[in-house]
Design a protein around this nucleic acid. Structure first.
Length: 668
RNA sequence: GCGCCCGUAGCUCAGCUGGAUAGAGCGACUGACUACGAAUCAGUAGGCCGGAGGUUCGAAUCCUUCCGGGCGCACCA
């Protein structure tokens, strides 16, 4: 509703400005006044134009208001302050629009590709990976809500050094044979399927082995360490090359771990469409095709001088290059030994994402969700498969530290003449997740006095210091359970379990989403699960309480809204005006802002705005709830109106929580 | 050395393309359960928006510079 009226007013103003002053503005600034008493929408456009028109802003504003006349959906316009134009909505018609809730998204119908999660398939997922996946998944939900067609990708680096380390761990630290590794994987799967205990799952076993192997490289004699390091790179190269037993074992390990990652993320409702793997990018020779394109476009050049002599290099994004001089700072893409660097492979991969490579993966089915399949890359795939890649816009959810390589890829695209694609390549960066000192201590980590004074404690997967995602979720569920049990002694165990899980997952997702992407999250379970303050449980509680009103009133939001549509505009307007009803009007207005918040989230690639909006909506409702008693209201029309208010609040809250990937229980 | 991010209330954070009196949550203090769920609500105290310049009718927001903190800048992957 808000977004529609905002656009309508901006359009009218643009026409009036052109007609009266000959001024053409691409954008009419619009804002929400600091106080509802001033109206629902305001524009400082007259202030902005004062200089160019050489006129007092107040005069301009007055002339504009006169020229606007009347506008559908608005009650009045007035000049305020130094030259603001404040607009008041026609409250009854606004309420009708909000109650019907048919506002559709005004966005372009693009095909977007979101890549997130991308965990090295060599150990269990940890809390930092959860932030990545939750951010990515939420953004996917937002794009879909806006009507975009979205494919979700999870890039798997199955031929990297991290996988090699676990292979080295099994084969050389533990001295297992290939057959033994196979049976370990099978045993783990079997035991885990039977017990459901994550501690017995294969990704947990790898977590410890990876940490041990990392240490093994540095804890021998110098000569031993040298040999171990050689072993590490020999293993890596065997995996990259493929077609040997080491590569086969790596494939088994990475696939088994990957499957666990998908299960972990599914707990939070996070699903994927396609899993492109590094191994296919190598074996299907994506790079070779990209190399030709890069050479042809002149983005890459062969360096004959300086420290990069013998390499194919690329100029960096912000580099200042003087003609005739060697650019020592250039980014090496092909090494002097002829092998390609990480950025090179990434360029090839991104050309594929935009459909510019002229090559495709083979596809096979890998993992089934209730309503769709997740596909994985393979050399020789199934004949019938969906089409991936060829997106118009891409979003890469990768932590902020990777901004440099991301910038290199964008630079290459632009250099190849794909400016439009480069502009629609978003590095969806985010900061790390750490732990509050008190939570780290709660998890059993020994902290120094210095650590305790810090505002957060960093985690490290390599050192095995951190919280595994599944453990974290289990801990949160257990904590939620103890609260639920206290309040509902009559519930069955299954009921408690279900509601506690919803609370825990919702609390986790909300906590990962309530901060802006570039702020470090110091995670604390108690803070995330707190029923007070800006948390998931607070939001879920608000929804549960509204549901309980309808249960007790023996009606449904749908019935109430259908009946509300019959109420006369005069009555609605009366119920929405007056000092004592300002809080109700504020709640309706908040409910009408969903689309404009969505617009803001997508425009800034920042889901946090929606999290804040959901919180404010719940807060507005709680406020309303304590000031107006609904079910005992004697005036039938007034009671209907109050019920409609609750219905709208619930519908919006549930919708917004759904976009955040949070399910709200019927009762909690 | 170059580049990116951050510095706002005791703490954790919002503040959209410059705009009206800088906002939340937590914590502290006061109040409100014989009415729809108090896992709630209302209220009070608390800020030279890191410092200094500049642009502007107008700056937490833009520019410059300094201070303080974090992270990138390999022919590693």
């Amino acid at each position: 509703m808000y977004l529609e009226l905002e656009k309508r007013l901006a359009e009218r103003l643009r026409a009036v400005l052109k007609d009266k002053f000959g001024a053409e503005l691409a954008q009419i600034p619009m804002e929400i006044p600091p106080d509802l008493k001033m109206g629902e929408l305001a524009t400082p456009v007259a202030l902005q134009l004062a200089r160019t028109l050489r006129k007092a802003p107040k005069i301009i504003a007055q002339e504009l208001v006169a020229a606007i006349g009347s506008l559908n959906g608005f009650a009045s316009f007035e000049v305020a302050g130094a030259g603001y134009i404040n607009a008041r909505f026609d409250r009854a018609s606004a309420a009708t629009a909000i109650a019907t809730g048919t506002e559709h998204s005004p966005f372009a119908q693009d095909h977007a590709l979101v890549e997130h999660t991308s965990i090295n398939p060599n150990k269990a997922a940890h809390i930092g990976h959860l932030r990545n996946a939750i951010l990515g998944d939420t953004f996917v939900r937002l794009l879909r809500a806006a009507g975009q067609q979205v494919t979700v990708q999870n890039y798997i680096d199955n031929t990297g050094v991290q996988v090699a380390d676990v292979v080295v761990g099994f084969l050389h630290v533990e001295g297992k044979s290939a057959a033994e590794v196979r049976s370990v994987i099978d045993d783990c799967a079997e035991r885990f399927a039977k017990s459901g205990k994550f501690a017995e799952a294969f990704d947990y076993l790898c977590w410890d082995l990876y940490a041990r192997t990392s240490q093994w490289y540095t804890t021998g004699t110098d000569a031993e360490n040298e040999a171990r390091k050689k072993l590490r790179y020999d293993t890596l190269h065997a995996i990259e090359h493929g077609g040997n037993e080491t590569a086969e074992i790596a494939e088994l390990i990475s696939t088994a771990v990957l499957r666990r990652h998908l299960e972990t993320m599914l707990r939070l409702g996070i699903e994927y469409d396609f899993l492109p793997r590094e191994s296919e990018i190598l074996h299907l020779k994506f790079w070779e095709s990209a190399f030709e394109l890069l050479k042809k476009s002149g983005v890459l050049y062969f360096e004959n001088e300086g420290k990069n002599k013998g390499c194919w290099v690329m100029t960096r994004p912000c580099a200042e290059v003087t003609e005739g001089e060697t650019d020592e700072d250039a980014k090496v893409i092909v090494r002097s030994n002829g092998t390609v660097t990480y950025v090179g492979k990434d360029i090839a991969y991104h050309l594929w994402k935009f459909g510019l490579l002229g090559k495709d993966f083979g596809y096979k089915q890998f993992f089934s969700y209730p309503d769709h399949e997740c596909w994985i890359s393979t050399e020789h795939g199934e004949a019938n498969h969906p089409h991936f890649g060829g997106a118009q816009a891409i979003y890469n959810v990768i932590d902020s530290r990777q901004s440099d390589p991301q910038a290199n890829v964008i630079q290459a695209l632009r250099g190849m003449g794909h400016a439009e694609q480069a502009d629609r390549y978003t590095h969806f960066g985010y900061e790390m997740v750490a732990l509050t000192p008190s939570y780290a201590a709660q998890l059993g980590y020994q902290l120094s006095d210095e650590d305790r004074a810090k505002s957060y404690i960093e985690i490290s997967g390599r050192k095995g210091f951190g919280v595994k995602a599944d453990d974290l979720m289990d801990l949160m569920i257990a904590a939620a359970k103890s609260e639920v049990v206290k309040r509902h002694t009559d519930w069955s165990d299954a009921q408690v379990e279900e509601v506690a899980s919803k609370i825990a997952y919702g609390a986790l997702r909300y906590y990962m989403l309530r901060f802006s992407r570039n702020s470090v999250i110091a995670f604390d379970q108690d803070m995330a699960l707190s029923p007070e303050g800006e948390t998931g449980p607070y939001l879920m509680y608000a929804a549960a309480r509204i549901r309980s009103i309808f249960r007790k009133g023996q009606t449904t939001p749908e019935n109430v809204l259908a009946e509300f549509a019959q109420l006369s505009p005069e009555k609605t307007a009366a119920f929405l005006s007056g000092e004592e009803n300002e809080d109700i009007w504020a709640l309706w207005l908040r409910a009408g802002q969903r689309m404009s918040v969505l617009d803001q989230c997508i425009g800034t690639s920042e889901p946090m705005h929606l999290a804040k909006h959901a919180f404010q909506l719940a807060q507005d409702f709680s406020n309303f709830y304590h000031h107006h008693h609904i079910l005992t209201e004697e005036d039938a029309a007034k009671k209907l109106f109050l019920l409609a208010t609750a219905a709208v609040a619930l519908r919006e809250l549930v919708a917004v929580l759904g976009w955040l990937g949070i399910e709200s229980p019927e009762a909690m």
